[in-house]
Design a protein around this nucleic acid. Structure first.
Lengths: 337, 337
DNA sequence: TTGAAAGCGCTAACAA
DNA sequence: TTGTTAGCGCTTTCAA
């Protein structure tokens, strides 16, 4: 089965083009790398020859001499999580704008895979966006020392970050529940180590304080539908009237669990998620949620990363805060009990 | 704002290690590239020094001299489509097994973006998996001539492919509906150019023929929830009792449209999708669907691609066919009218 | 088993 | 504006 590789024609190089066009190789190089530094006519001629020969600059060779690989890494904990696929989409958009290619590092929710993935990808890229990571702050900081880095929804002293406005989002969610007559809100916590989780719970506590709503917290749970179901199991006897979950996936898991066990949503329990993933719209009832501008986050992160690569100073003191928005759908209603 | 780049320590090279270890650079190279060709003790020493210095082989430099970049491209039409994210997951798994990195080429449902994406990525990779593409067969074949390629759910003469067993899946779906007493099945078609769509419709016709069920087809529609809703609008007056949609996204869009317009599922209409994406489980009622082993497809595709790269012969005559499975959930029921 | 030297395809001084 | 000449960091002959 395994034989000698099929012969494929070797890709033409700068030298082939140079010979064919009757100029020096460096002139060919210039034509593509710094047009303007070469006579318009010669350039045209060279391009013509190059096109005829099907010449494409070898990006690796270019990278070797310029040490600009034009590649970026985006690290996520799970590609199949819709939150991250939207993030990747944003990153791709901004990357191609800046003529960068993105390497996907998918941790597959495993520390070891995350390491290996990073190892593999890091030496090839000029910078990295940490969409999510289980690595410790100090580990990340070490990496940030080697390559430009932007982190998402995380607070890493000295490393620029892009975050969503959790406090405002949570505040709006709490207000919404307050307006519907709810007096107590239960927060279903996500992963313990999550910065966003801490932010959200804190924001809820503060909002509760100001709005005279009592708050409590259960968890932590996995940030998945399974985690949500687990939370549901814990609240089955004496469910609260209002719940805010760490994210949509959990809210959906919780929603389905409750409904399956005879608790009606929103009649018995009002439920709010975070992120506004596509599935939030699809469940019955559709989920009220605090929408995060995920794609915009990806775009912002990459734009900042590229700026960093190009020598911008890491204005790391303040994070880039992107606005959230409460999307009211069917899972919240006036309190009835 | 844009200033001189922050100084980052230059990564140690093979020369640094060589000097520090008191050996020739080529020996350091050998230690990593072909261990066994170097004395065990020297090798150990070199590794020790390398570790101490934090040496990491520069993959680009290596690629330049070996012309093995250890990178693969996966082209998809839309990263945010759950079908493709699962595919990417599979590709990642197989790629890391083989010590390859994957470059994601996301077409964002646009021809132009697809082109650019491909241009950007192609010269850097050793091979490419076409998860989906709007490119013509002939264009793809041209590319396959330059780089090893594996296509998914598509039939490209001369190019190895991985497909799901659409005929069997469709057959099972039709049988299921037949057993529930349905006598006519409407197929809601996906994108016109889609090979899978053609396969599915053909398979349904044949199954219908054998099972004495009448079949008809409407569409094409976009393979999205929006497309599904559009189809719903077309069938509002006099809806069929049984519908099979090109994929889950469409089925879900259709489902929600029908329910919103007073048509009950599954009481009035039984509905089946394809793929078994996560959302299929989340909608109400949960969707009966023909599950595709998406992750396995990604794995299979990449494994084959790697084999191809290593010189396996393209046994392109037969495609790799992966089994499908009918997952019966709540959207199908006995015919009542 | 090791070292010396050439070269992968490109860019970047430096001259001309 | 163009050509000449060194490399970029690694692998790979070829000798020793």
């Amino acid at each position: 089965m395994t034989d000698e590789p099929t012969r494929r024609p070797a890709a033409p190089t700068i030298y082939d083009v140079a010979r064919e066009a009757g100029v020096a190789p460096s002139t060919v190089s210039r034509t593509f790398a710094r047009p303007g530094r070469v006579n318009a006519d010669t350039a045209a001629h060279i391009r013509e020859v190059a096109a005829r020969l099907g010449y494409r600059a070898n990006p690796l060779a270019r990278a070797l001499s310029t040490s600009r690989t034009k590649m970026l890494a985006v690290m996520v904990s799970d590609v199949t999580n819709p939150f991250y696929s939207e993030l990747i989409r944003g990153a791709q958009i901004a990357a191609s704008e800046a003529d960068y290619t993105v390497l996907l590092a998918d941790a597959r929710e495993s520390d070891q895979v995350e390491r290996e993935s990073l190892e593999r990808v890091l030496p090839a890229v000029e910078g990295i966006v940490i969409g999510s990571s289980r690595m410790s702050d100090s580990t990340l900081r070490v990496i940030a020392k080697q390559k430009p880095m932007v982190v998402l929804n995380r607070d890493l002293m000295g490393v620029p970050s892009v975050v969503t406005d959790n406090p405002r989002g949570m505040r709006r969610a709490a207000e919404h529940l307050g307006e519907l007559g709810h007096e107590a809100i239960t927060y279903v916590a996500g992963p313990e180590a999550s910065w966003a989780d801490g932010m959200r719970w804190r924001a809820l506590r503060e909002a509760g304080h100001e709005l005279a709503l009592s708050t409590r917290r259960i968890g932590p749970f996995a940030p998945t539908t399974e985690g949500g179901a687990e939370a549901g199991a814990q609240m089955l006897d004496g469910p609260p009237t209002a719940v805010i979950a760490y994210n949509d996936l959990m809210a959906i898991g919780l929603l389905r669990f409750l409904v399956a066990h005879g608790v009606r949503v929103p009649e018995d329990v009002s439920l709010i998620g975070f992120d506004d993933i596509m599935a939030a719209r699809l469940v019955t009832p559709p989920l009220t949620t605090v929408a995060a501008p995920v794609r915009a986050m990806g775009i912002t992160a990459v734009r900042n990363l590229v700026a960093l690569i190009n020598g911008a100073h890491a204005r790391a003191a303040e994070a880039f805060v992107l606005p959230t928005r409460l999307v009211v759908r069917g899972s919240t209603a006036r309190r009835r009990r």
